[in-house]
Design a protein around this nucleic acid. Structure first.
Ligand SMILES: [Zn+2]
Ligand SMILES: [Zn+2]
Ligand SMILES: [Zn+2]
Ligand SMILES: [Zn+2]
Lengths: 144, 144
DNA sequence: TTAAACCTGCGAGCTACTCACAGGTCAAGC
DNA sequence: GCTTGACCTGTGAGTAGCTCGCAGGTTTAA
């Protein structure tokens, strides 16, 4: 099986597979003309990688897990250890994204009631710089 | 004012400022010994960049906004245009993060009631590969 | 005056791909 | 046998937004 066929089979891009080969997560054989050929072990290895990726593990995490399993050991302890920090990071990023979306939404709401600002020497854009103070502070343009 | 002082003043890393200089968002002068020196226009420009960044604009967006303002035009129309796709992307990423955190949390919950798996030839880690089917499907290890 | 502390710009590296590209492979048609 | 064209290949470079390492310059206290 060559790259494109495997990509279709697992619904990922051929580039993604080539990337995994390049970083050593997949180690397919090479045929006579230098192309990578994947056997069924490579297929299940890829399936594992994708599954782990969808659980939030980094490719480096996945490499560690695969290494552990490759040594004949149970990778479960490593898996349980690794997911903790990933979960913390994911929660943090989620909170950050939530705050960002809220900031953006209230900006858009606020801006809809504000006119375009005229260029002045001191400011670049009152929408962005003024944020909310402009609406409640003086009720008008800041520098006129 | 040199990089480190400006960084302290605006509570960002010196590397961040150097990055903005490198990509041309900040254009400070150079003093005799080749160091960048920032005047008060550079300070307010940086303040603007940070504010826009915190509203979800990309550095490329910010460049466009600054260019527009630099031509003496009102950047507001560009700002209003640019925030729309950024808000969509942010909402999408928020939803993705939410789904990811939920997947991770239910995995951790599920795993807490599962034993470590013993290595077998067909699987790498039952925790990751089994996901939930393992718990409800057969109630035991899949390949024994 | 010299030693240490601090600061500088610049190159490279980070994640997880994605894209561009020159060239290889292969079946159909003449 | 030969050519055309579609399809596929690996490799190098590029993406965002920093962050780190480093060799060396500047400043200050002893
Ligand atoms: Zn404006
Ligand atoms: Zn103004
Ligand atoms: Zn396991
Ligand atoms: Zn098994």
């Amino acid at each position: 099986m060559k790259v494109a066929e495997l990509a279709r089979l697992e619904s990922v891009s051929a580039d993604t597979i080539r990337h995994y080969v390049r970083v050593g997560l997949l180690v397919p054989e090479k045929d006579g003309s230098g192309y990578h050929t994947f056997n069924r072990h490579d297929v299940s290895r890829l399936r594992f990688i994708l599954h782990a990726r969808d659980l939030g593990f980094t490719l480096e995490d996945i490499r560690l897990i695969l290494d552990e399993a490759g040594k004949g050991k149970s990778p479960c302890p490593v898996v349980r250890e690794l997911i903790e920090p990933r979960l913390c990071e994911a929660r943090k990023r989620l909170a950050d994204m939530q705050a960002l979306v809220e900031r953006m939404e209230s900006a858009v709401t606020l801006w809809s009631s504000l006119p375009d600002c005229e260029p002045c020497g001191d400011h670049i854009c009152h929408l962005i710089e003024g944020d909310s103070e402009q609406l409640f502070d003086k009720g008008g343009a800041c520098c006129e």
